[in-house]
Amino acid sequence: MLKVNDIIEKIGLDIRVSGDMYKHVTGCYISDLLSDVMAHSKDGELWITLQTHPNIVAVAVIKGLSCIVITNGRLPEPDTVKKAESENITILTTPKTTFETAGLLYNLLRSE
């Protein structure tokens, strides 16, 4: 199974906060609504979102997500970075859109 650092390499993501890079990525969940992620994401999933505020870290911790990928060139807020560092949550960014990132990742996860 692919790990966080395999995915960073294969689809070219920028590391903003480096948490556990050897976590297994079990799948992916896309959402910009925190309540939706709380309700439907599963343990080990990589989370693609546009949200940048500190609450995303809490959601990732509670749901046991493998990492957060922020798309469209948005950057995590300074407080989000601090919180992620203290919680050991990996935050990655990309200038690509959510659709493109998902398209590339879907292909990658399926080919494994």
Binding site: Y29, I48, K96, E100, A102, G103, Y106, R110
Partner: peptide
């Protein structure tokens, strides 16, 4: 289906991002 599967399938089907 969830957004991830939908995006993956449509991307594989040749559609691209706006």
């Amino acid at each position: 289906l969830p957004a991830f599967t939908v995006c993956g399938m449509l991307y594989a089907g040749g559609l691209r991002s706006c």
